[in-house]
Amino acid sequence: MAHVSAVERRPQLVKAAIDLMARKGVAAGSTRAIAAELGVAQATVHYTFGTKEDLYRAVMDQLTEDLIARVERAAPEDAGFEETIAALAGALWRSAREESAGYHLLTELSLLALRTPRLSEARQAHYRGVVEVTARLVSEAAARARQELSRPPEAIARFFLAGFDGLTIQRLYAPDEAAEVLGLRSLVSATTALATGRLGLADVPTD
């Protein structure tokens, strides 16, 4: 059998891990099972990545890159501000609905990372990357529409993503298509209102 370098083997193992864990869950993603998925020796996984956590981190990076690329492709070049926010929301929602196995896997890995110190950096990098891309797209949409933002782009991005995360959790626990569509439309309207200064902010006791 021809020798395959670690550089070539790395994306193969990442794909095998994604395919396996998307079908069976993170708990099934042992290095032995991932190696069997690709048809290689278990030692190949450890030689290529070192530890299971290093492989999981690479999986999170790949899933995050795929999600960001999909959102960036959805951003229209000549639309108004609200239309752009709606397009981004639609692209993310389609990812959660049509690519649900991969989206759920990323959510599952993110939750695992909360209790796994070796994955903490990957979890933070994932969220930073999504926030940064969303904030950039918000800024670009505002510039095209000549819309002055009432809040920093990052704050608007975090507000939007917080609402979207809530909708996806509801879809997992209590699916209701009509309520989900209403929630998505409301999120786009609320994000637009926050960005343009039309959303009044209530005082909330937090101490």
Rank of each mutant, 00 (worst) to 15 (best):
L105V: 03
A202I: 07
D54A: 15
L109A: 05
S110G: 13
Y127T: 15
Y47G: 09
R118T: 15
D207F: 10
E108P: 02
S5M: 08
V40T: 09
P205W: 11
T107N: 08
R185F: 00
A79D: 13
R136A: 02
V133Y: 03
T107I: 14
P205I: 04
A193P: 01
L187R: 05
A162N: 14
T192P: 05
E148A: 15
R73G: 06
P175Y: 02
E65P: 06
V4R: 11
L13M: 11
A89S: 13
S30C: 08
G183W: 03
V4E: 10
T206H: 06
R185W: 05
T116L: 10
E140A: 10
A190M: 11
T44F: 00
A157N: 09
A2K: 13
T168L: 12
A6F: 01
A143W: 09
Q170V: 15
P11R: 01
T48V: 15
S110P: 05
A16K: 00
L92K: 10
L63A: 04
A174M: 09
A91E: 03
L105S: 06
F81K: 08
R128C: 02
D54E: 15
R9P: 00
L20H: 09
A87Y: 02
S186R: 14
S30G: 15
E8C: 07
S186H: 14
L161H: 06
A113Y: 05
Q147L: 12
E177P: 08
S189Q: 12
G90D: 07
L67N: 09
P152V: 06
R123W: 07
R70Q: 11
D203P: 01
